[in-house]
């Protein structure tokens, strides 16, 4: 019962924060609100029994993403968003239609927290029952992430590496800086 109450409260907070992000035009406030949004969702992950995801979301979503956005704001020095020149009608229509289609789709999803849902039946019991014996790690999420799917996690490092190279080539390279200086002259 308390779970449901916290769940509804956090969802309400998330909705208010999301609407505030749409409304507010000061980009610094937008970034801070986004950080709050991430922190609230980390809380919601804890309520939904996903402790590992909550840790990562709080550290990466609320922490690193916010720092990256603040750094971008410092580099671009453009603190206020300008009003859009065009009408909001078409985007609103697209969003409403997409939202309606998605809500229609949820009628086929079993109820929230249903223990007999297909998602709970297929391979989940295997991991819950066998992972402790096979890997010796009590945390099933860690067992899957680091042992059963260890290579995927290694591949993830490649993704971060590629993103790092991309960022370096875009803004950090010596060539780009030199060219910018020539442009300034």
């Amino acid at each position: 019962m308390l779970d449901t109450f916290i769940d509804i409260t956090l969802l309400a907070f998330l909705t208010i924060t999301a609407i505030a992000i749409i409304k507010v035009r000061d980009l610094f406030v937008v970034i801070m609100l986004f950080s709050i949004f991430s922190l609230h969702s980390a809380g919601l992950f804890v309520v939904m029994d996903a402790a590992d995801v909550a840790f990562t979301e709080a550290a990466v979503g609320a922490g690193i993403s916010t720092v990256l956005m603040l750094a971008t704001l410092a580099l671009t020095k453009d603190h206020d968003e300008k009003r859009p020149a065009h009408k909001a009608r078409l985007p609103l229509l697209v969003v409403l239609i997409t939202g309606a289609a998605l809500v229609y789709g949820t009628y086929d999803i079993p109820s929230f927290g249903d223990p007999d849902a297909p998602a709970q039946a297929h391979v989940k019991p295997y991991y819950i029952e066998q992972s402790m014996r096979e890997t010796g790690v009590p945390n099933t999420v860690t067992a899957v992430l680091a042992s059963y799917r260890g290579y995927d996690t290694l591949g993830e490092v490649t993704v971060i590496f590629t993103a790092g190279i991309g960022v370096m080539l875009l803004i950090g390279g010596r060539l780009t800086r030199k060219r910018d200086k020539e442009d300034d002259r």
């Binding site: 029994d49 590992d52 990562t56 990466v60 671009t76 998602a119 709970q120 971060i160 960022v167 875009l170």
Partner: peptide
């Protein structure tokens, strides 16, 4: 227990998400 498999997927997705955010912000700069 809650299903651990979505948790694993989303852990990966969060990390990939911050990589794409970083790249997008670099493009903005």
């Amino acid at each position: 227990y809650a299903n651990p498999l979505p948790h694993v997927l989303i852990l990966t997705a969060i990390v990939v998400g911050v990589s794409t955010t970083a790249l997008g912000l670099a493009l903005v700069v």
